[in-house]
């Protein structure tokens, strides 16, 4: 049973205290939705959990590894606000690049991943020529490749149509069914089993 524990986290941006002494635990199979108003610190919290930013105080531990260790970074997959795509690269090149950066999988199947998110014939299309929703789908196709246990998704449903949202919700449920865990922020309603919620 894997467990992600966040202990006494505090974050400050400028003179603004976003949150103080925030603690929670998330067990495998659970999804946590962070809710809150704009500017309440949802993205900052996710970035801290992803290891991008260091917290003012507190620590994050997953299976005995701390958030700045290499093992922790292999176990987490963070998809941020932006789709993290280079517009000069094709869909499949972008996906290869992101996969190499975030996982250690040898010869993953990129074509199936792109097919799953409905971009079957776009493999060699430059990412710069795609719409915002399609770009988001490329980034999210990483969810069909990654073997990381902890998924950190910042507004994953932005720019997606209802069909796309459903595909991703299903994938998150599948991930949790095999023992993964997921933290996401969204303003939309989502229909995911075992959904816990905290609000900032």
């Amino acid at each position: 049973m894997s467990k992600l524990s966040v202990n006494n986290l505090s974050c400050q941006r400028g003179y603004n205290h976003l949150f103080e002494n925030l603690s929670f635990e998330l067990n495998s199979g659970e999804v946590l939705r962070i809710s809150g108003q704009n500017g309440s610190g949802k993205t900052s919290l996710l970035k801290i959990i992803a290891g991008l930013n260091t917290p003012e105080l507190g620590s994050i531990v997953f299976e005995q590894s701390k958030s700045n260790s290499e093992k922790y970074q292999l176990e987490t997959l963070y998809l941020g606000h932006y789709a993290a795509l280079s517009s000069e690269l094709s869909c499949i090149e972008n996906l290869e690049y992101l996969t190499n950066l975030s996982t250690e999988i040898i010869s993953p199947n990129f074509h199936t991943a792109l097919e799953e998110v409905g971009l079957k014939n776009y493999e060699h299309e430059l990412a710069g020529n795609l719409s915002a929703g399609q770009k988001r789908r490329i980034a999210l196709s990483l969810l069909f490749i990654s073997q990381s246990k902890v998924w950190l998704l910042d507004e994953p449903f932005t720019a997606l149509d209802s069909n796309g949202v459903k595909i991703i919700e299903n994938q998150i449920e599948k991930h949790c069914a095999v023992g993964g865990l997921c933290i996401l922020t969204t303003h939309q309603d989502c229909n995911i089993k075992n959904l816990k919620e905290i609000s900032l």
Binding site: A50, E70, K71, L74, Y78, G80, S86, L98, E104
Partner: peptide, 17 residues
């Protein structure tokens, strides 16, 4: 700047490499 604007740099920083 380019990588920073489109979010690729975040992925580079949190990469296990």
């Amino acid at each position: 700047h380019y990588d920073y604007d489109n979010g690729v740099l975040e992925q580079i920083v949190i990469s296990h490499h």
